[in-house]
């Protein structure tokens, strides 16, 4: 492997861009393909399938075996609200290899004592989200019940096509939320992407069980798509 290619690969990973590294296993020749450049590639169909599934593997080509390795960005979870559920949720998400950021402008909630060992931003989401870039490999959960805090990041998550957007609140609370977002110009097909009431329906009681239900739903969507 040429060091220049290794450097390009690490840069792409750092910038959270999905790339594939193709290795001809008989010659050792390698090349790197960005997910955005797949259309122009001679292996477009194969690469497209691989990028979608995230699966690396060997395929047969004229020269022999070609190893395709997909480097997709790691999944992230952005939690809006440094609330009790968030305290239970962040260690579960970390155990599932998610990089977690907790955001809450209320400094009484967003304390290091309540949230040690996790990235904590005691700022308004609109400020914090200038640093934490949302993308298709990010899940966003809004847990404050407070429209002043939740609505803007929910909107931002939908705009950024985050793979999962969930919001805490009863059907009634969510109904009002939908009204506000509709009034702000978000269309119904986009609003349907919000998971609310949040979490798998397992009869969860209390913060820890709700956190499990939320994490299970996020994993379901990441592995199986929207229907989870």
């Amino acid at each position: 492997m040429h060091p220049a290619l290794l450097s390009q690969l690490n840069t792409a990973r750092l910038e959270r861009v999905a790339v594939a590294v193709l290795t001809d296993l008989s010659t050792g020749e390698k090349r790197l393909v960005h997910a955005n450049d797949v259309d122009d590639d001679p292996l477009a169909a194969e690469l497209e399938t691989r990028f979608r599934s995230g699966k690396s593997g060997i395929i047969s080509v004229d020269t022999g075996e070609l190893f395709i390795q997909i480097h997709a960005p790691s999944l992230r979870l952005v939690v809006i609200g440094a609330v009790h559920i968030s305290q239970a949720l962040f260690p579960i998400a970390q155990a599932c290899n998610f990089d977690v950021t907790v955001i809450d402008p209320r400094t009484a909630f967003a304390t290091k004592e309540r949230f040690s060992n996790v990235t904590l931003e005691a700022e308004w989401p609109e400020e914090a989200l200038k640093e934490t870039i949302l993308d298709a490999y990010t899940a966003v959960v809004a847990l404050t019940h407070d429209p002043k805090i939740d609505d803007i990041p929910i909107r931002a998550a939908l705009d950024a096509e985050c793979f999962y957007v969930g919001a805490l609140g009863s059907n009634k609370t969510h109904g009002k939320r939908l009204d506000r977002l509709r009034a702000a110009g978000v269309t119904d097909d986009v609003l349907e992407r919000i998971h609310a009431p949040i979490g798998l329906d397992i009869g969860a009681a209390g913060p820890a069980e709700i956190a499990v239900a939320v994490m299970a739903q996020i994993i379901g969507v990441s592995r199986r798509g929207k229907s989870a």
């Binding site: 492997m1 060091p3 290794l6 690490n10 990973r13 750092l14 960005p73 790691s74 992230r76 990089d99």
Partner: peptide
């Protein structure tokens, strides 16, 4: 992998820095 997770223990990041430091490096 995010900025935070790409620490010095990341194998690919480590391979790059070892090579830049003039060491012989292989990747498996």
């Amino acid at each position: 992998m995010t900025e935070k997770a790409m620490t010095e223990r990341d194998p690919l990041v480590l391979a790059e820095s070892w090579h830049k430091a003039g060491k012989g490096v292989a990747m498996a």
